[in-house]
Computed example of a mutant assay.
Amino acid sequence: MVGPPRPLFVLFGSSIVQFSYSEDGWGAALADIYARKADILLRGYSGWNSRRAVQVVDQVFPKDAAVQPSLVIVYFGGNDSMGPHSSGLGPHVPLPEYIENMRKIAIHLKSLSEKIRIIFLSSPPVNEETIRERASSYRGIFSDIDRTNEACRRYSEACLELCRDIDVKAIDLWSAIQKRDDWMNTCFTDGIHLSSEGSKIVVKEILKVLKEAEWEPCLHWKSLPTEFSEDSPYDLVASDGKTTINPSEWTFHRKIQWD
Rank of each mutant, 00 (worst) to 15 (best):
K110D: 11
S143Q: 10
V57P: 05
N101L: 09
P5K: 13
P225N: 05
W215L: 07
E249G: 14
A53L: 09
F142I: 13
L121A: 01
P96I: 03
F12D: 02
I145F: 05
V202K: 01
S248N: 12
Q68I: 11
N185E: 13
L194W: 03
H253R: 13
C187T: 10
D146W: 00
N185I: 02
G198M: 01
R164L: 10
E197N: 10
L30A: 08
D24A: 14
G44F: 04
V60N: 06
E214C: 10
V93Q: 00
Q55Y: 09
E205R: 01
W215K: 07
L42E: 08
E197K: 06
A135R: 08
S143N: 10
I256A: 11
G198V: 04
A53W: 00
R36Y: 10
A213P: 01
P94Y: 01
S86N: 15
T189Q: 07
T189H: 04
I16Y: 09
S123H: 04
G241F: 10
S22M: 15
E128G: 05
D182H: 12
K179E: 13
I141L: 13
L207Q: 03
G83N: 03
P84D: 09
L95Y: 03
E214A: 14
L109S: 05
Y138A: 15
E249P: 12
S81K: 00
S123I: 02
I105G: 04
I192Q: 03
G191S: 04
W250E: 14
N149E: 09
G83S: 06
I192L: 05
I131H: 00
E216C: 14
S15G: 13
D231I: 05
G3I: 10
L207A: 06
I33F: 02
R36H: 14
P69V: 00
N79V: 02
I171L: 01
D231Q: 05
G78S: 13
K211R: 09
F188T: 04
I107P: 12
F9W: 00
R147E: 01
C152I: 01
R117G: 04
W215F: 09
P233H: 02
D58I: 06
I256N: 09
L194N: 02
H85G: 05
E129T: 11
